[in-house]
């Protein structure tokens, strides 16, 4: 699945500051309680080694049921993307982005219509692994927009990522502590 890259700034101190504040931040769940049993944890991983920037934010598009807002922020931490408040419905990663001092701010977008590899339909609350991927540049013509693709990788595994998620501050003392442990037990 190919997407396209948009460079939005060469350098903008305010933007970098804002991104820094967002990076790895905790986020609310659109008014949903973290212990809402109807919520699902959706998570995945993006290796940005070959990308111009790191991955500082990820937007999860709510495809169905259609809603006015339409997008959910995912938390990011060293390549992991996650949201633990996701209600039943159909979702896919719409775009992600980040910035670096030299390369500026970049946004990596998938087509709005059609499936991509991260597409997931949630009918039953649970823990949904949308995969681990590596960012790759795609050769384009001189006058064409920059493009990228994401290629599936076997590492890190779902189990490794769940073990990392288990150490995050937002997990302790919530329903997710047991739900993640239960999922890890299933993966043994």
């Amino acid at each position: 699945m190919k997407g396209w890259v948009k460079k939005t700034h060469c350098f903008n101190g305010l933007t970098l500051l804002a991104v820094a504040l967002l990076a790895g931040c905790a986020f609310s769940g659109g008014g949903r309680s973290i212990d809402d049993p109807t919520s699902s944890l959706v998570f995945g991983y993006m290796d940005m080694e070959e990308a111009p920037t790191s991955m500082d934010y990820v937007k999860l598009q709510q495809v169905a049921p259609r809603s006015e807002a339409g997008y959910w922020d995912m938390g990011t931490d060293d390549g992991i993307m996650y949201n633990q408040y996701v209600p039943p419905g159909s979702f896919k990663v719409a775009h992600f982005g980040g910035s670096s001092f030299l390369m500026g701010e970049h946004r990596y977008s998938f087509p709005t219509y059609g499936r991509n590899a991260t597409a997931v339909t949630i009918e039953v609350p649970g823990i949904y692994f949308i995969g681990a991927y590596a960012y790759q540049e795609v050769d384009t013509g001189f006058f064409e927009a920059d493009k990228f693709s994401i290629e599936p990788t076997e590492n890190p595994s779902e189990k490794e990522l769940l073990n990392t998620l288990l150490t995050m501050d937002w997990v302790e003392g919530t329903q997710w502590e047991s739900r993640i442990k239960n999922r890890l037990a299933e993966l043994q």
Binding site: F27, S28, G29, G30, K59, E68, A69, G70, Y71, W72, D73
Partner: peptide, 8 residues
């Protein structure tokens, strides 16, 4: 956190 893209 939900984000609205309609606020331009």
């Amino acid at each position: 956190m939900k984000h609205s893209t309609n606020r331009l």
